[in-house]
């Protein structure tokens, strides 16, 4: 059973998740199907900045986050930025979109100059997230759990972060049991995606270097 406090917690997190999105004037540009390689590179770079700003605005609303040590807050955001961006991108990519939009987006990514060896694991990850058919509450909580990973570099008070993460994991676990009673492995599968995210994040640094050189 989810307690009243836990329900209130989920409500705050989901509202923040819905409120903080990439600005529409930026996403509209993504859907233009006429663009040069340079325009594409500039837009995807602009989006990366927006993604980080959106991540920070969302994270400030996570109950307890702003009570953490200030430098730990920065360490958590720095450490989780790439994973959180991939997770959010995967969720957006799998959302129902008007006809043709998914194809334009996929085409844009494939023609961005990013090497195929990185594109493949990225799209594989997007597909594996899509297969989960997560509801909004699960997406928001999984993102929160990613951000509140205690073993990021330079985090000093790991126990404080761990306590906060445990609170979120407990709520998510209960939600999975209640929402997916016929699939007792659902929670474990969600957490399995976090391991995939870590792998993808390790590819990311190499992906950037090769892309910049291209």
């Amino acid at each position: 059973e989810i307690t009243k406090d836990q329900q209130a917690l989920v409500k705050i997190i989901v509202e923040a998740y819905n409120r903080h999105q990439i600005p529409q004037d930026v996403t509209k540009k993504l859907l233009q199907d006429q663009y040069s390689a340079e325009e594409n590179f500039l837009l995807l770079t602009e989006m990366a900045t927006n993604q980080v700003q959106v991540l920070v605005e969302f994270t400030k609303n996570i109950p307890g986050f702003l009570s953490l040590d200030r430098e730990d807050q920065i360490a958590l955001l720095k450490g989780s930025a790439v994973e959180a961006m991939f997770l959010r991108s995967a969720q957006v990519f799998n959302r129902k979109m008007p006809s043709g939009h998914t194809e334009v987006l996929e085409d844009r990514i494939r023609k961005s100059g990013i090497s195929e060896e990185f594109i493949t694991p990225m799209f594989n990850f997007y597909k594996s997230i899509g297969e989960l058919h997560m509801v909004r509450e699960e997406q928001a909580l999984l993102t929160t759990i990613t951000i509140l990973t205690p073993d990021r570099p330079y985090v000093k008070d790991q126990q404080a972060v761990e306590r906060l993460q445990e609170t979120m994991l407990d709520v998510l676990r209960k939600m999975c049991v209640l929402q997916h009673p016929q699939d007792p492995q659902y929670f474990a599968r969600l957490l399995g995606r976090l391991t995939e995210l870590r792998t993808l994040s390790h590819y990311h640094a190499e992906m950037l270097t090769s892309w910049r050189m291209n």
Binding site: V52, Q53, E57, K60, L66, I74, K78, A81
Partner: peptide
């Protein structure tokens, strides 16, 4: 290192935004 510094700058500015308000 340069791109990591850029990321940290963006994060610090965005975090500070609330305090300034």
């Amino acid at each position: 290192p340069a791109s990591n510094l850029g990321l940290e700058d963006i994060i610090r500015k965005a975090l500070m935004g609330n305090l300034e308000e």
